[in-house]
């Protein structure tokens, strides 16, 4: 009963997001569209809090959840109400960054769950051995991929948004050095390689443990012994992603900030969608991907409205600094 109600809540959420976005793109219905989306979000959140269950278990820690919701709501409403009209874009950037950080934190927690062998939801005892095993280890790989993606994109978006916020604020000056693009590329390359290694090494370790256990025909899935350094590499990837977010936005001129914020906005959307994969959660998936694709198109449209190309804004950022500065 509960879980089917929750599915309906998620369905309503997804539909309102689509309808809301559609209405937002028309001046006459825009304000109503925003409310429609907000209502859908409310339903999805309340549904999750009260109806979500995994393996027949309800959520715990209601005190913490409601505490967090309350604090967030109060700060959010006050900040959004008090901000001056002219400071709106930087506020949007800040909120966007918060969403990115949220995705990042989720990934960190889930990663720790994964490597410390969180109690598996799959059967612990025997037979159908190979099948169960292999699908478990493959799950680990896929899950890890989604976790890493969510973390990387979320932290890039978080760091980038904070920098964008600072720039619109005038607190952070443009900063560019020669060969910055090369440095950026190198950082990105290292992030990708390190992530690939984390996924590979974990997959390897999982398999080894499983075959060992199989040999002794006792099967305790999930009690994996990860290679020692894997946690450190994960946090290094986290740090590098944050660095990349900073480096990515730093050289872009203040006048181009709205475009960048829109781009980071769609990044956060994708990070949210990774969460959707992680929890098999359709609202997170539709909401995130919708924003990801709509945000990307919006970014391009904004560039066009400013008579610039996206490539110009991002790659030609040195020129951007000069014209905008």
């Amino acid at each position: 009963m509960g879980s089917s109600l929750l599915s309906i809540a998620y369905l309503i959420g997804s539909v309102t997001f689509i309808v809301g976005l559609k209405m937002l793109s028309n001046p006459a219905s825009a304000r109503k569209g925003n409310l429609v989306a907000a209502a859908g979000m409310f339903i999805a959140i309340v549904g999750t809090i009260f109806l979500y269950e995994e393996g027949g278990e309800r959520l715990r820690n209601y005190g913490w959840i409601f505490g967090g919701l309350l604090i967030g709501t109060v700060i959010g409403v006050v900040a959004a109400r008090k901000v001056k009209m002219t400071a709106m874009p930087e506020m949007v950037s800040m909120f966007n960054g918060m969403g990115g950080a949220c995705a990042m934190l989720i990934s960190i927690v889930e990663f720790n769950h994964l490597i410390h062998g969180a109690p598996p939801s799959s059967p612990t005892v025997n037979m159908e051995l190979l099948n169960v095993n292999i699908s478990v280890s493959q799950n680990t790989t896929g899950t890890l991929l989604v976790i890493l993606l969510g973390m990387i994109i979320g932290s890039v978006s978080f760091a980038g948004s904070v920098i964008a916020w600072g720039k619109l604020n005038g607190k952070i000056k443009d900063f560019a050095f020669n060969g910055q693009h090369i440095v950026n590329l190198v950082v990105l390359g290292v992030i990708l390689i390190a992530s690939a290694y984390v996924i590979y090494a974990t997959g390897q370790a999982t398999e080894e443990v499983l075959t060992m256990k199989l040999g002794r025909s006792e099967l305790v899935v999930g009690e994996t012994h990860m290679p020692a350094g894997i946690g450190w590499i994960f946090y290094a990837v986290l740090a590098l992603s944050l660095l990349y977010g900073i480096l990515f936005v730093m050289p872009i001129g203040g006048a181009d900030m709205p475009v960048v914020i829109s781009l980071l906005n769609s990044f956060t959307g994708v990070a949210a969608a990774c969460g959707g994969f992680l929890y098999n959660n359709p609202v997170m998936l539709t909401g995130g991907i919708l924003v990801g694709s709509a945000g990307t198109i919006l970014t391009i449209l904004m560039c066009k409205a400013m008579n610039r190309s996206l490539k110009n804004v991002l790659i030609g950022s040195f020129g951007g600094t000069q014209t905008a500065g």
Binding site: G20, L24, A37, A44, V92, G99, I261, N265, A272, L298
Partner: peptide, 11 residues
């Protein structure tokens, strides 16, 4: 619209 989309990825 950007701001609205921003709120939506708050999922």
């Amino acid at each position: 619209l950007m701001s609205g989309a921003n709120a939506i990825h708050g999922v």
